[in-house]
Structures are given as structure tokens and as C-alpha cells.
Design a protein around this nucleic acid. Structure first.
Length: 413
RNA sequence: GGAGAGGUCGCAUAGUGGCCUAGUGCGCGCGCUUGGAAAGCGCGUAUACCGCAAGGUAUCGAGGGUUCAAAUCCCUCCCUCUCCGCCA
């Protein structure tokens, strides 16, 4: 959530930011009204409680009578206050984080800005195959058996497909350790507070998360959930900041209603493995950290020798949490187009306020800033590797940096 | 999963209906003392919200309930520890 004081003091500023994200700016007025209503009721309730506290210091028949009266009044007003608080919270949580000033204007994907390209989209002297075909021919990915056992959009990895994922994970984690990240393997399930607190909800859609029947648990859609929750309700030491984690987890997404050629094969699946970067910083450092994350992603994908481009999200495509966001899109010959492989966001103090994560700065405690960024998803990275590195004979050359982890330099039949 | 014991202001503990505005010890901070230090002594040491302020309200694992009044009584849940069971 954003700072309620910002809304009280400068509702117009908030409205402008909300409008840039193409959310309904009327929500700000609703919050202002509900906030006032809540304050009025809060004052009444506190006055009555004060009276009650005074009375119970001296026991007498008269005071017992007075106490009974107060009890009755409170019974009436307290539920009203509760309801007002609930309404305020619901409306308030609908207010997204505000975009940074220099974020490009725009409504959605079509308005995102390509900042630069690295590498050349491959040209083949033969007709390239897509990863689904390659995966089947090389016997390293099996969608059909997974469909039988788990349903559509699940997959088995086999043979060198397994080695490739493990190599990527091993290489990726070491890559981040060298850059000062603390490696973490996190739980794959988390309580509602955490998977909602990180706001893994696309605009208005709650159906993204798988939940466990009979328990307050959901399968995480990203390690961002568990890495953000790690320090929930803590006050961190200023001297420990920034804290940088490299998270390894499985990710689970329902992806309801996502079909079509752009969702083919590994591109959109219900479960995948991901190595995620996460950072807690001082407020003044978060913009630099976002650039550091982006640079780290670029260095990683360059080391894999995959052509990619950097895209800055426009205000309308930031989602509720981010103030600024960059994606890397890798070249995918199978679709003859770019495909998103990473995403890095600065959520500033928005998640920190949801999860109550602060740091001590002298006499003051302030909210930390929190950032996340994908190093790679072990579903989409193999798409790029298989499709870009395929040879005419159907084999696939492994990126050099993975050779030591893979134990070979080529996947062949 | 079963049985038992617990969860109190940074840490350790006291508190079993109104004297709790939560005591004490440790730690920490400031001051006195000292040539300097230790000890000793004194004072102060949570968070959030409302309020210009004085001050007020809430929080004793969480949520409900009983009562004029709840850390304290009742119910539900969560977590930790010990033992048992089961398993990797």
C-alpha cells in the first residue's frame, strides 16, 4: 500500500499517478471519504473507552451502572468502526504504487519502450524448429506424459533436459553469489498474507494462485513472495542494507485462459523453476539497485550468448506494485519474435508497508525499499537456448559457460 | 498425528479478575561519583494510531467470548520445546 498521509495531504498528486497507470482515479476520492468516516468513529470509540477505563478504577454500584451504559454504546459503535476500517482497507489496497516521473506514458504492452538490443537475431541456413519439436526429438522434454499425469501445460524434463536445468541453476546461483547475493532455497508454499502481500495479482484477477484445501497455504508464483516475507514485521539495521538474496524456488501459476501460439510449449506453464534476485535497500538507493539488477540480468544473458532486447514498461503496464520496471526479451526463433525472459521492478516502500518492514535510521524508523528481478526462469531460458543454438543436424550446442555444469558441450540424439 | 509444557515491554523472569498506568534483573543510554575506569547511586529506556499540544486509545502469540472491569476466566486457532508415532 502507499502512504495514507500522501493521500490526505496531496490527493491530486495521487490521482495523477493512479491515472497514469490507467487505474480508476475515483478510488482516491473514495479513500479520502472513507478515511474521514473512520476517523470520526475512531474518536467516538476512543472517548468511550477512555470513560470506561476511568470508571473501572473505582468500583461502586453507580459506576457499574455507568459501565453498563458505556458497554451498550460501544457494542453499537465498535462494529461500525470495524466496518469502516474494512471498507477503507479494501479501497486503499486498490490504490497502486505511483509510477516514477520518468516512466514512459502509455496504456499497455504496445506502449512499452525498447531501449536497446544486444546481439543479432540468428539467421539459419535451414528451417529452424521450435523448442517443442527439438525437445521431443532429443527426448529431453515430454509434454504428453505430463498432460496425462498432471494436465495440460505441465512438462517432464528428461535426460539432458534435466542436466540443462540443473546446470542453469548451478551456474546462475554462483553467478549471483559472485555479485554479493546470499543464496536461498525458499519454501514453495506460503500463507495468504505473503502471497497477497507481495501482490502477485494481475489487475483484478485472483485466479493466479493455486491454494491448498483446508490450509492457509498457496503455491508461490515466484520466490519474490518468500523472499519478501522473510523479513516481514522486522526492523532491519541500517548498516546491513542493502540485503541481496538469490532465491531458488519452483513457481506455480494457474495461467487461466492463456492459450494461443505465444503460449506454446514451455513459454506458459503451470510449474517452473526460477532463480530470482531480491533486494532490501535504503530509500535513496533503490533506483541504483534497479539499474544493478538490470545490468546483472544483461550480463547473465550475454554470458549465455542469447540475443535480447531491453524493454522499459510504460506506466499502464507496471502492475500495482512497481514504480518502474524493465523486461529482457530474448530472441526466440521458434516464434520468430522476442519473448519475455526476465522482469525487474522497484516496488519502493509499497510492499514494505504491506509487510511492515522497516529500518532504523537514528531515532526514526523508515520503510525499506524492495526490489525484485528475474535472473532466469528454467522454462523460458531453455526455449532461447534450444531454439537459438540448434544445428542443422538437430543437435543443440550448449553455451560455453554451462559446459562445466553440464559435463558436455552439445545435446544430440 | 498423539501426550505434556510453554508463548508477557531488546533478553531473562514476576504476575491467576479491579493495587498492572505490566513489577524485577540483565542489557542499553544519560548524569553523579573518579586522576581515569570499574563498582555504586540517580534518571531514562516498545510499537502503532488520533491530537497543534496537554493528553488519549490499542497491543501481554492471534482471533472470538464472559464481565461494570481481562495478561489473568472460557472457546477456537497458530507457533516453540520435550517425549511418542510416522517418515526422507
Amino acid at each position: 500500500m502507499i502512504d495514507i498521509n500522501l493521500i490526505r495531504e496531496n490527493p491530486e498528486l495521487v490521482k495523477a499517478g493512479v491515472a497514469r497507470k490507467h487505474y480508476d482515479a475515483g478510488i482516491v476520492d473514495r479513500v479520502v471519504a472513507l478515511d474521514k468516516e473512520r476517523l470520526d468513529l475512531l474518536q467516538k470509540v476512543e472517548e468511550l473507552r477512555h470513560e470506561r477505563n476511568e470508571i473501572s478504577k473505582n468500583d461502586s454500584p453507580e459506576n457499574r451502572e455507568k459501565g453498563k451504559e458505556i458497554k451498550e454504546k460501544l457494542k453499537e459503535i465498535e462494529p461500525q468502526l470495524e466496518k469502516a476500517e474494512e471498507q477503507l482497507n479494501t479501497a486503499f489496497q486498490g490504490i497502486p504504487n505511483l509510477p516514477q516521473d520518468d516512466v514512459p506514458e502509455g496504456e499497455g504492452e504496445k506502449d512499452n519502450k525498447v531501449l536497446r538490443e544486444w546481439g543479432e537475431p540468428k539467421k539459419f541456413s535451414f528451417t529452424p524448429k521450435d523448442h517443442v519439436e527439438l525437445g521431443k526429438e532429443l527426448d529431453i522434454i515430454d509434454f504428453e506424459k505430463a498432460a496425462k499425469v498432471s494436465g495440460s501445460d505441465f512438462y517432464y524434463l528428461k535426460n539432458d533436459g534435466v542436466l540443462l536445468e540443473l546446470a542453469l541453476v548451478n551456474y546462475g546461483i554462483r553467478f549471483l553469489i559472485e555479485r554479493g547475493f546470499t543464496p536461498m532455497i525458499t519454501p514453495d508454499l506460503a500463507k495468504e498474507r505473503y502471497y497477497l502481500g507481495t501482490g502477485y495479482l494481475p489487475k483484478g484477477d485472483e485466479a493466479q494462485i493455486y491454494t491448498v484445501q483446508g490450509h492457509d497455504l498457496g503455491l508461490i508464483a515466484t520466490a519474490e513472495v518468500t523472499l519478501a516475507g522473510y523479513h516481514a514485521d522486522e526492523t532491519l539495521n541500517k548498516k546491513d542494507l542493502p540485503i541481496k538474496y538469490a532465491g531458488y524456488s519452483h513457481c506455480f501459476r494457474q495461467e487461466a485462459g492463456a492459450y494461443g501460439k505465444y503460449s506454446k510449449g514451455l513459454y506458459r506453464v503451470h510449474q517452473f523453476t526460477k532463480v530470482e534476485m531480491f533486494a532490501y535497500t535504503k530509500p535513496e538507493d533503490s533506483n541504483n539497485m534497479l539499474q544493478e539488477f538490470l545490468k546483472t540480468e544483461e550480463e547473465f544473458w550475454q554470458s549465455l550468448e542469447i540475443p535480447y532486447r531491453v524493454v522499459e514498461m510504460c506506466a499502464g503496464d507496471l502492475g500495482s506494485q512497481a514504480t518502474q520496471k524493465y523486461d529482457l526479451e530474448a530472441w526466440m526463433p521458434g516464434r520468430n519474435d522476442w519473448g519475455e525472459v526476465t522482469s525487474t521492478s522497484n516496488t519502493t516502500d509499497y510492499q514494505a508497508r504491506n509487510l511492515n518492514i522497516k529500518f532504523r535510521d537514528g531515532d526514526e524508523t523508515k520503510y525499506v525499499h524492495m526490489l525484485n528481478g528475474t535472473l532466469f526462469a528454467a522454462s523460458r531460458a531453455p526455449i532461447a537456448i534450444l531454439e537459438n543454438n540448434q544445428q542443422e543436424d538437430g543437435s543443440v550446442v550448449i553455451p560455453e559457460v554451462l559446459h562445466p555444469y553440464m559435463g558436455k558441450d552439445k545435446i544430440e540424439k
